[in-house]
Design a protein around this nucleic acid. Sequence first.
RNA 1: GCGGGAGUAGCUUAAUGGUAAAGCUCCAGCCUUCCAAGCUGGUCACGCGGGUUCGAUUCCCGUCUCCCGCUCCA
Length: 533
Amino acid sequence: MGQQAASMELMDKLVGLCKRRGFVFQNSEPYSGLSGFFDYGPLGVELNRNIEKFWWDYMVRLRENVVGLDSACIGPEAVWVASGHVGAFNDVLVDDKNSKERFRIDQLKYQAEDDAEKAEIFALNWIAAGGGDETHFWDGLKEHIGYYPLNPNSGKASRFTIPRQFNLMFRQQIGATGEAAQTGYLRAETCQPIFVDFELVRVGSRQQVPFGIAQVGKAFRNEINPRNFLFRCREFSQMELEFFVRPDELVEKLKAAGVAAEDGADGQPGTQASTMDWYDYWLAQRKAYYAELGLPEDKLRIVPHPPEKLAHYARAACDVYFEFPHGWGELEGIHHRGDYDLKQHQQHSGKSFTYFDMDAEQALIASGMDKAEARAAATYLPVCIETSVGLGRTFLAVLSAAYAEDTQETKHEGKDEDIRIVLRLHPRLAPVKAAVLPLSKKLGGPGSEAYRLYRELLRAGLNCEYDDAGSIGKRYRRQDEIGTPWCICYDFESTGEKGDELKDTVTIRDRDTLEQVRVPISEVAAWIQKRLN
RNA sequence: GCGGGAGUAGCUUAAUGGUAAAGCUCCAGCCUUCCAAGCUGGUCACGCGGGUUCGAUUCCCGUCUCCCGCUCCA
């Protein structure tokens, strides 16, 4: 079996496990499903929340200068025109009928750079005018630019389909009656509302640059072809931080004026850090985050964008790649966005998004700069460093890294050993922290000591299960499969019927080592909590 | 969306132009039961729609979904 086949097998196993045990399944199953949409079941929702909580604590709660936002999932057309998505997400695609490849029309091979853009505009107009057949379009384009474009891979002429427009955003009619309705879009990324709300959040939270706004929420993209389970969906959750810092121009002026630099809080870059220093800072923070999250290092890679692939406004960008079952794929993007987004919204809305940096102004004046000049220098659009992670992708990464199969001895007739499926999830992420399993059903039931312990753990804030069905071995395996780190067994010793020594104690079994320790019932909750932190 | 493959219980696999079989899982019960043991009983399927036919899970068409390539970048 090749590596590709083996890894696809892993994906199939994950999909099966997720469906069987209620982690994730396809949306609208009874109606044969809807491509690119998934529902998170009882265990999935817990795992998701645990991942999200970890991110939120790491990025927001433990920091003085990052605040949260939870914006609407839909926004007016103007916002998405300003962000560039109405234009950029509007790809015009053609298929090569000979090679079966698909291309954006502006990425065919042209004799001059301008012609690519001309061709795209020509195609958009042609589609808007009602379209036609292939001959009509390609002959029209030839008349327009003087020749037929070529296949960029082969460099040869080919037969292409008519251009088709793919809008990757979900367009919505807002307002119940047709005439009064205005056009809106489901947000294609969670960061745009952060930029739009920048001023209200800043003023309301009394934050000053440098500071960040974080948001976790749903985003929607009408993907041409959703693929690879949770990797590419049409509805997905993002965990994004937009962090706003002083522009380099101001920092240069502070330095030139001889203003003394001050250190930043919590090991952050100081008052005269460049925007690239901040980019490096967040990149390092994100690396540290992944180390703590527990994803294996050899499955993670940081890949910088080569300069020629950067968006025109971006100073630097890199992606965090993870080796998913289907191959390496992007988990997170870390981008230096310049002041592009705030500038766009300032232009399109006609409102001011500039920030007045009083500290900078006073420092410049104190160092002898003219007051008006200092004020001008201290009034700016902050530069934004973005970190943007896919929650569903993290979910898939965590699951695929945790999935393992053991061989264990078995009592099954005719078999010596059995395969044990175990999710080696970090206890912090495990959807179920512990399971209370009375050794025999006679030791269980409502009103039993075992059940009381289960209730106590729930009240202590630990998501736990109680299971007294069938054999103890089977119940252990069921918990292994969902990654429950600890199984608590209430046995006949616990009752005291075999002597006082072990009375009121239970065994706690470790998911990974299968080893058991005896712990007094009264200490179980604390025992678990200690190991979760 | 285009091209290639696929769709029978939760899973793995049967059979059939005449109302679908099994193993595992699952559920209930028995068992002083510590790693999917054993025993008894039970639930659950021809993806959906249309056509051909006396009759379709089986043949045909469409559709939906899944897998592989083109494309994608959270």
